[in-house]
């Protein structure tokens, strides 16, 4: 991770006012489109205003759209959100499609803040069946026993010794040989 990303403000997924628990509310309050009537770098914005602005405004009645011509300044999209934060992006030399995309982003996000997400989910109830504790699945018999207990002091796993393995193999061979002899006898 680059240093810049470490220094970015970071946070967890959140929604203002429990959005979606009650009714859903679009968080964009108003958007201001600033542009120049003459200069070429505002051309895309002028195209957008000419062709798509009315569609955008009718599609998003909850957003107030202001159009602000400014002489000889580059075009800008500025959004204001319900939580009081702003979203500002320069639309300098952007074409109509690009402006449409950035405006769509402005309407769908909660605020213009760029921050690093530390988790990809948020929950207030991390465990319903209960987290593990030292007492979970504990044998109640242990309540009355006194420690140290011999039973619990034994090693959990003891590998077989070489002698024991040899004895087992020998016994199995004996059994097989007996079995074969019986078959031959038949």
């Amino acid at each position: 991770m680059a240093n810049r990303q470490l220094l970015l403000p970071s946070g967890f997924p959140r929604a203002p006012l429990g959005n979606g628990v009650g009714r859903f509310m679009c968080q964009l309050k108003r958007v201001t489109l600033k542009f120049c009537k003459e200069r070429g770098d505002s051309r895309g914005m002028r195209d957008f205003l000419e062709h798509d602005l009315v569609d955008f405004a009718t599609k998003h009645p909850s957003v107030v759209v202001y159009v602000k011509p400014r002489r000889h300044r580059s075009s800008v999209i500025k959004g204001e959100y319900c939580n009081g934060k702003d979203f500002w992006i320069s639309a300098h030399k952007m074409n109509r499609e690009e402006i449409q995309k950035w405006l769509h982003l402005a309407t769908t996000q909660n605020d213009g803040e760029e921050f690093r997400l530390r988790k990809m989910m948020h929950t207030d109830n991390p465990s319903i069946q209960g987290p593990w504790t030292p007492f979970t699945h504990r044998d109640p018999k242990l309540n009355n026993s006194s420690f140290p207990l011999e039973e619990l002091s034994e090693p959990v796993f003891v590998p077989k010794s070489a002698t024991q393995q040899l004895i087992e193999i020998f016994n199995e061979q004996q059994r097989t040989a007996r079995h074969l002899e019986e078959k031959q006898g038949e």
Partner: peptide, 8 residues
């Protein structure tokens, strides 16, 4: 409830 872009 939200569609946004991640940090760069």
């Amino acid at each position: 409830i939200e569609k946004r872009l991640s940090h760069t």
